[in-house]
Design a protein around this nucleic acid. Structure first.
Lengths: 244, 244
DNA sequence: ACACAAACGAGAGCAGTGCTCTTGCTTTGG
DNA sequence: CCAAAGCAAGAGCACTGCTCTCGTTTGTGT
């Protein structure tokens, strides 16, 4: 590969990002590996993702692949991060397209984007919201990408609650302190009552999406789009969003 | 097992259910295999469940195991069915203990039983509500066990709605026909408005449980029991249940 | 009571896997 | 210009799911 480009990056070269032709080739190969792995993921699922098969398809030998990913789980981790980012970006794009609309509209736009992405990439969705890989615990690197959708939902609710306070159901005393800590962590400017139901709605959204993607609605819910829309509108209502 | 026991089970044997000593031995070995598989499942997760390791632990050779389960996936299927049944029975027991209480109490009892079972058996929960096994589609045999919790929730809501109609939010027209079909399928005596939100609440319950079991609440929700109780109480409210 | 068929456990073997280690070659930087 | 680092290739280890064959055990119809 690469032979074409006019290389000789020069002594100095760009001081910034890629230090030379080798570095560029490295990220190119790394990306090719991830692409091929994603292809196999989409076909056979994560469990059958085989390093050897990826290498074979790329015309290299399996051991060469370990120069780029120290283990199969590390490849999976890379795919997980990419999946979180892909989902997050999809959601953000969908949100920005209706950024000027009312909070309910923005909320449903995000939820429907999540659902659409999940249906379009079921195996990648399974990777990030399905059963976690057995031995493996997600490195801290995955945290920011994983938070993107949640932060979006928080932002929508925050905008809606700015100024006019919405009627909020009181918290049970046993949840009081936890809700306050939670609110201080994720949305200091929102009342704890709202944050508690918002986090719940966040999880419930993925319950709806997961049931559809994983086939739990088979032979039960048939016309799923209006069903989802209705459920998501009720979630919006439950966190205090109103039209307008 | 084996060599020690006094064997020679006798000619006739019990004429009833198991047709002979051989049939009895068969279900015994089958059960032993499932037990050992469940043990390994609890330790390493489904992905690392190894037929050979199970056989090794049981003192038999791997090929012998294929007399009982034609493939690894069939073993997993058996474990899936058992998991659904275990969860269903746990939920039913928890419900029956408060069968005379009000609908909200019964609802939360079931939800908390689901959560407790999931936390106690995370890998089995992942097996039935996590990412589905790649190639594999659940046989019809899994349908009845899988339905037990859902039917329980339906029963609670049906009892509560018997007689006094509860205020129901109107359905969007696009969901009208689907909700009616859905209601006719799962709960003909409930109004479609209620069935639609009930099915949504059912999925949302597993969103809450799944996020906790799969670690999505790590570093976010700390005191999870009151959080869950509050969310579940709101779900009960959303399907029209009231105390009393 | 005997014989035949089905069920069974053991072993060898195939193709595939993740991963390690060693061997040479090429690029890079001092 | 040369040593050091990066790289691809190959052999090899321990493991997997699964198949096939081969004697043996067990249950049953005659």
């Amino acid at each position: 590969m690469s032979s074409s480009t006019h290389d000789t990056p020069g002594r100095a070269g760009v001081p910034g990002t890629p230090r030379g032709a080798r570095a560029r080739a490295r990220i190119e190969v790394t990306e090719a590996i991830k692409d091929e792995a994603r292809r196999q993921l989409a076909v056979d699922g994560a469990a059958k993702l085989s390093l050897r098969a990826v290498a074979r398809e790329l015309g290299m030998v399996s051991s060469a692949l370990y120069r780029y990913f120290p283990s199969r789980d590390d490849l999976l981790t890379a795919l997980i991060i990419d999946a979180y980012d892909s989902l997050g970006e999809t959601a953000e794009t969908a949100h920005d397209a209706v950024a000027d609309a009312g909070p309910v509209r923005r909320w449903t736009a995000v939820c429907e984007a999540v659902r659409a992405w999940a249906l379009a990439h079921p195996h990648e969705y399974a990777l990030i919201y399905g059963s976690p890989v057995p031995g493996y615990t997600a490195p801290r690197t995955t945290v920011p990408p994983a938070a993107r959708v949640g932060l979006l939902l928080i932002r929508i609710v925050r905008d809606a609650h700015r100024g006019q306070g919405v009627a909020k159901t009181p918290l049970p005393t046993e949840l009081r302190t936890e809700a306050e800590r939670l609110a201080a962590d994720v949305a200091p400017d929102l009342p704890p009552e709202v944050v508690a139901v918002l986090v719940a709605a966040w999880a419930e959204l993925y319950g709806l999406v997961g049931f559809e993607v994983f086939g739990q609605f088979n032979r039960i819910v048939e016309d799923r789009e209006p069903f989802f829309r209705h459920a998501v509108a009720r979630l919006a209502h439950s966190v205090g969003l109103v039209h307008g």
